[in-house]
């Protein structure tokens, strides 16, 4: 394999992994507070379509990304109201958000189908982008890619080095204790859900504005669900989320290279397209086999409602 091909593959892998990193890190913070929001596919879809529409009308991808984040927050609050204020079943509420979000995005997006946005140019980091092979792949990327790395360091610092992160984790591990020393469990969980919504919205915005850049119904194509699986795969640890997201990114772009390489492989394209979904299943099997590792690492109150005055 020559250097150019490696560079191209690495570049595409990083791009394909980025929306997964952004969304999964948001879900990780969300779940660390003890709330399981299965609606990420819906939040990503809404974020994607709103970001696309705002970018199309304003001409600014950054305004679009911001709008996508806000839209993600807005729909995450629907889930928050049901699951946190009304104590509804978190699984059912999340599913409702997934179905609603995908439907609403198709509805909003209909007039925008078959419109293409201008591609957002990459940002070259001086000097280190000249490193052979990896420089071009890693440091001549979309600004959002760098942002996803910053997000990773931010989440890492917040979760394990800041007092607020400690409080958040305590709310996820033992909401009753956190409540008894004066923290508002529901309030903190609302913030965590909103952060999850913002990141899913941003992840969706990356797909529709920076990655493809276009909108069709079903554009998110299961990335929201894959991000949920990634968090389990990562056993709720940010570094493993990064690694996992790039692994998935690699699987996602594999088909492009098999098709583009001119290799005469007698595989239908649909088979290669299904690989990320099979990979998700395999990853879930491998990680879930060790029940003890899941039990040890998952936030103790994940998915369980908490009522302060009960």
């Amino acid at each position: 394999m020559d250097g150019n091909l490696i560079t191209a593959m690495l570049f595409a892998t990083v791009v394909a992994g980025t929306p997964l990193i952004i969304t999964a890190l948001g879900l990780l913070v969300n779940e660390k507070a003890g709330v399981l929001n299965l609606g990420s596919e819906g939040m990503m879809a809404i974020g994607a379509v709103v970001a696309f529409a705002v970018t199309h009308h304003s001409g600014s991808p950054w305004l679009g990304a911001g709008a996508g984040m806000l839209a993600g927050v807005a729909v995450s609050l629907l889930f928050g109201f049901l699951a946190l204020t009304l104590q509804a079943n978190q699984v059912a509420s999340g599913l409702a958000l997934a179905i609603f979000g995908v439907g609403l995005s198709a509805f909003i997006g209909k007039p925008y189908e078959s419109i293409a946005l201008k591609a957002v140019p990459p940002v070259r980091v001086p000097f280190i982008s000249d490193i052979p092979v990896i420089g071009e792949a890693l440091y001549n990327q979309q600004a959002m890619v760098y942002l996803s790395w910053a997000l990773f360091w931010g989440v890492l610092w917040f979760m394990y080095r800041s007092r607020a992160g400690l409080v958040l984790r305590s709310v996820g591990e033992s909401p009753a204790s956190a409540h008894s020393i004066g923290f508002s469990v529901i309030g903190i969980r609302y913030l965590a859900v909103m952060f999850g919504g913002a990141m899913a919205g941003l992840g969706g915005a990356f797909v529709s504005v920076f990655y493809t850049p276009m909108w069709v119904e079903g554009l998110v194509a299961g990335r929201g669900w894959i991000a949920l699986a990634l968090v389990v795969f990562a056993t709720w640890r940010p570094l493993r989320v990064m690694v996992g997201a790039y692994l998935f990114g690699g699987v996602m772009i594999l088909q492009l290279f098999v098709q583009g390489s001119g290799l005469q492989i007698d595989f239908p394209a649909q088979f290669l397209s299904s690989l990320p979904y099979w990979a998700t299943i395999i990853v879930l099997v491998v990680i879930s086999r060790k029940l003890s590792s899941i039990r040890l690492n998952s936030p103790a109150s994940l998915g369980k409602p908490y009522r302060p005055d009960a």
Partner: peptide
């Protein structure tokens, strides 16, 4: 249709 269907489930859970 999907918007209404999703809303119906939201309202039910609420």
């Amino acid at each position: 249709s999907m918007v209404f269907q999703g809303m119906l489930l939201f309202f039910l859970l609420g």
